[in-house]
Each structure stands twice: as structure tokens, then as C-alpha cells.
């Protein structure tokens, strides 16, 4: 039974990111993996090795698309060429949903290639929700929007990040890709309690969870995806699963990438909490923070 309307894929279990250093091993050994997450932009090309490899992966594995540069929060229109190529790729992969970030990254056609933070204003809520709705219509697939790690806050902000996220997804009528590592990193950088964030998220909209490692510096935490998942992040994950139920989970590891088996073993640690969630699929209902009355709650 799906945990919610945006989480009809609870059987997806634990996935890992498909990364180039693992191509040969995956194709040669064909390990059992629940699913792979790909960075959409790496495969939005017209030919060559990336697409050929993807096709071979698709013969055996389920693939979910995760994007990094649609920039729902950019003040100007989404890039039409990007959307068209993204849609073509979704037809190739059969991805059940498409995710990208709650951020901005380009202005006047110049791209930062970063996930830049938004001011949490009503103007940004409206703009971002409108762009997500547009992308959802164009792609004809559910969109999950992911909270990012951030290192800056704006004077203009009128609400907390979790209030902003809830407002955007409600207006856009989209799902959430909850990155608990990003919540932890931002909570350290901005001095809030990460558990407050996890408890505030509308569980009826969470369709996927990201876990990852980060780096600690003296004055800030940086979302580097180059370490195993740290204990405080597992605690947030446990709480998220308790609230949301069994949810497709993905370990992100993008730098200093370990051998495939090591990476996969780290990801599979998530099963400890997922197994418990199977026994109480309506965990969300037991949340101490009441799930908002929602016309979206029934799946």
C-alpha cells in the first residue's frame, strides 16, 4: 500500500546513484540493486557512451531521474530546451517521477551551476510553485522537489525554510524529496533544530528520501557527498521514516566515490528503519505533529 499519493513506489526500497566509476562493474557483475538514481542532465545528450550505457542499465534496472539545473526558484521562466530534453529522457527511462531542487541558479540566461538558496518570501513561494506546476504539466509526471543545503539566509525571508517548503508544495501540488542530510547541514549552519524541520514536513507529500555524508569545517558544515552518512543524519532519517512510512531511499555519494559494494552496503543500512516501517505503514498518522487536513492525503 502506498504511504501517500506521492509515494506509490514504496517497493522501490533503497537505491544508489549511478556514477561513472561504477559503470564497468555494474555491467559486468550485475549486482542486485533496488534502483538507480541518475542525474538527468548527464544523459540529456543526443548520442555516445552515456546514453548507450544508460540503455544497458535500463535492460535490467529501474532508473529514477534526479535533476540539478531546472531551477524552479529562478525568477525568470524555465528553460524550454531543457524541459524538452528532460521530457525526452523520461520517455527513455520510464522514470516514475522526476525530482529537482527547491533553489534558484540562473538569471538572464547565465547559469551558476549551483543550488542557490531562496529568500523565504511569499513572492518566491508563488513564483517557485508556478514553475513547478508548469514543469509538471509539461513533463506529465509527478515532480518531487528537494530541500537543499544552504549557507546563507536573506533579510527578506518571511518564514522558516520548512514553512516555505510546505507552502510551495501545497500550491504546486507536487511531492517532496526530503534530503535529511541537507536538513542537518542547514540546521547547523543556521542554528535551528533539525528535528523541528522533519516534524513539520507534510508526510503526505514525501515520495523519496536522500541520505548522504557531509564535511565539517570549524565554522560551517558543507554538503560534500563524500563521506558515509553520519549518526545525526541517521537519526533524522529514522524520524522521517517513522512519520512517512516506507519510502524510496537513496544514498548520494558524488566525490571520493568508494568501490560499489562499499557504497551499496552503506545505502542498505537504511533497511534497518525501512523494515520497521513496513510493520506500521500508517506511521504518518501517529506523528506528534498533526498532518494537515489535506485533499491530497488519500492515495
Amino acid at each position: 500500500m502506498p504511504a501517500n499519493r506521492f509515494n506509490g513506489f514504496t517497493q522501490y526500497g533503497v537505491g544508489v546513484g549511478l556514477r561513472i566509476p561504477h559503470y564497468d562493474e555494474i555491467l559486468a557483475r550485475r549486482p542486485v540493486v533496488d534502483w538507480f538514481e541518475i542525474i538527468s542532465e548527464n544523459y540529456m545528450v543526443d548520442g555516445g557512451n552515456a546514453l548507450a550505457t544508460l540503455d544497458r542499465i535500463l535492460e535490467q534496472y529501474r532508473v529514477v531521474q534526479h535533476g540539478v539545473s531546472l531551477y524552479f526558484g529562478s525568477a525568470q521562466r524555465l528553460n524550454g530546451d531543457h524541459l524538452r530534453r528532460l521530457k525526452a529522457l523520461t520517455r527513455r527511462t520510464g522514470t516514475p517521477w522526476v525530482s529537482d531542487h527547491l533553489c534558484w541558479g540562473s538569471v538572464d540566461g547565465t547559469y551558476s551551476h549551483d543550488l542557490l538558496p531562496l529568500p523565504y518570501t511569499w513572492e518566491a513561494v508563488e513564483r517557485t510553485a508556478q514553475q513547478i506546476r508548469h514543469a509538471q504539466q509539461e513533463l506529465e509526471l509527478p515532480i518531487l522537489v528537494e530541500n537543499v543545503s544552504s549557507y546563507a539566509e536573506f533579510h527578506d525571508s518571511e518564514m522558516t525554510e520548512w514553512e516555505f517548503l510546505n507552502e510551495v508544495v501545497e500550491r504546486a501540488d507536487c511531492g517532496i524529496l526530503l534530503d535529511v542530510n541537507n536538513i542537518y547541514v542547514s540546521s547547523w549552519n543556521h542554528d535551528f533544530d533539525p528535528m523541528t524541520y522533519v516534524n513539520a514536513i507534510d508526510p503526505a507529500r514525501v515520495g523519496q528520501i536522500h541520505i548522504a555524508g557531509h564535511s565539517r569545517f570549524e565554522k560551517y558544515r558543507l554538503d560534500t557527498h563524500d563521506h558515509p552518512v553520519l549518526d545525526p543524519v541517521w537519526k533524522l532519517y529514522a524520524r522521517a521514516i517513522e512519520r512517512v512510512g516506507h519510502t524510496a531511499t537513496l544514498l548520494e555519494w558524488d566525490d571520493r566515490i568508494p568501490p560499489f559494494d562499499e557504497l551499496h552496503t552503506e545505502a542498505l543500512k537504511a533497511n534497518r528503519w525501512l523494515a520497521a516501517a513496513v510493520q506500521s505503514p500508517m506511521a504518518a498518522a501517529q506523528s506528534p505533529v498533526a498532518a494537515p487536513e489535506s485533499r491530497h492525503a488519500a492515495a
Binding site: 525568477a75 525568470q76 534558484w104 538569471v107 542557490l116 518570501t121
Partner: peptide, 8 residues
């Protein structure tokens, strides 16, 4: 500051 101006 408007969103567009802020981003610029």
C-alpha cells in the same frame, strides 16, 4: 528586494 533583483 524583488526576487529578480536579488538574484541579479
Amino acid at each position: 528586494m524583488q526576487l529578480l533583483e536579488l538574484q541579479r
